[in-house]
Computed example of a mutant assay.
Amino acid sequence: MKKLLLCLLGLVSPLSVAATMPDDLLIIQKPIVFDDKRKALTLQYMQERYGMMQDEPTIIPRLVVVHWTVIPTFEQTFAAFNPPELPAARDGIRAGGDLNVSSQFVIDRDGTIYQLMPETTMARHTIGLNYTAIGIENIADGDSLPMTDAQLDANTRLIRYLAAKYPIEYVLGHSEYHRFRDTSWWQETDANYFTEKNDPDIAFMNRLRNQLSDLSLKPLP
């Protein structure tokens, strides 16, 4: 039924749905602006932050990083991610470049999954790891908007889908990304460019990884 709904929405072709989409997964396509400016900024980010020189801003996903937005609605989150250039309000991370933050996916509080970018296009969401990480943002803040059971279920189903398509080795929360700093995964060229994160809470991440325990995921470093 969900496959049929996706087709009726005109989001993907029937053949594409039948070939790649599980029965229990509905992904609503809601692309942010990815024009020549964003492409150039992404390529610049990859070169300056990771020493990667490419003609296209593509990645091979091997990690999934789960986040919360601290923005209360999907609409506001989309509006924040949509401009190609980092707004003045984010000057605290401007040292990392002018590319705006974003993620490939956003999950609303009721479990609705939105795709903002192609899975293999780099998004700026996790210092040091963007070059190989798919980002999943959740509409939550851990306080007045805790992560929901619907989001747990949606993250589980989405990550299973991604792990079936790509060689995903780790699933981590943004709050856990520091554990990769002393490994070969960390490609950030500036050792001083780092920010502390607390999203999502570790209890949620442990519940999520328990739901994915049958996958061949590696324990975090």
Results as ranks from 00 to 15, higher is better:
1 M>L: 09
3 K>F: 05
6 L>F: 00
6 L>Q: 05
9 L>T: 06
11 L>W: 15
11 L>N: 12
12 V>A: 09
16 S>T: 13
18 A>I: 02
18 A>W: 07
19 A>H: 14
19 A>R: 15
20 T>D: 02
20 T>P: 04
24 D>C: 01
25 L>D: 11
26 L>Q: 11
27 I>M: 12
28 I>D: 11
29 Q>G: 01
30 K>C: 00
31 P>V: 01
31 P>E: 08
35 D>E: 10
36 D>K: 06
36 D>C: 10
38 R>P: 14
42 T>K: 13
43 L>P: 00
44 Q>V: 02
44 Q>L: 12
48 E>L: 11
50 Y>E: 15
52 M>H: 03
55 D>Y: 10
56 E>G: 08
56 E>V: 10
57 P>K: 07
58 T>A: 02
58 T>I: 05
60 I>C: 11
63 L>Y: 03
63 L>R: 01
65 V>N: 11
65 V>D: 09
68 W>R: 14
70 V>N: 01
73 T>P: 06
74 F>W: 04
78 F>Y: 13
79 A>Q: 02
80 A>C: 04
85 E>D: 13
87 P>H: 12
87 P>Q: 06
89 A>R: 12
90 R>Y: 13
95 A>D: 14
95 A>S: 00
96 G>K: 11
98 D>F: 10
98 D>P: 00
99 L>S: 12
100 N>Y: 06
103 S>M: 04
105 F>N: 02
106 V>P: 05
107 I>Q: 01
108 D>H: 00
110 D>E: 13
111 G>M: 03
114 Y>D: 12
114 Y>I: 15
115 Q>M: 01
125 H>D: 13
128 G>Q: 12
129 L>T: 00
132 T>A: 06
134 I>T: 12
139 I>T: 00
139 I>F: 00
142 G>C: 08
145 L>Q: 10
145 L>V: 03
147 M>T: 07
148 T>C: 02
149 D>I: 03
149 D>W: 07
152 L>C: 05
154 A>E: 02
154 A>C: 08
155 N>L: 04
156 T>K: 14
156 T>R: 11
157 R>M: 08
158 L>I: 11
160 R>M: 04
163 A>W: 07
164 A>W: 01
165 K>V: 08
167 P>Q: 15
167 P>K: 07
169 E>W: 04
169 E>L: 08
169 E>A: 09
176 E>R: 10
179 R>D: 01
180 F>N: 03
181 R>C: 05
181 R>L: 05
185 W>H: 08
186 W>Q: 02
187 Q>F: 02
189 T>L: 02
190 D>F: 01
191 A>P: 09
194 F>H: 14
196 E>F: 04
202 I>G: 06
206 N>E: 13
208 L>W: 11
210 N>K: 12
211 Q>C: 15
213 S>Y: 13
218 K>Q: 03
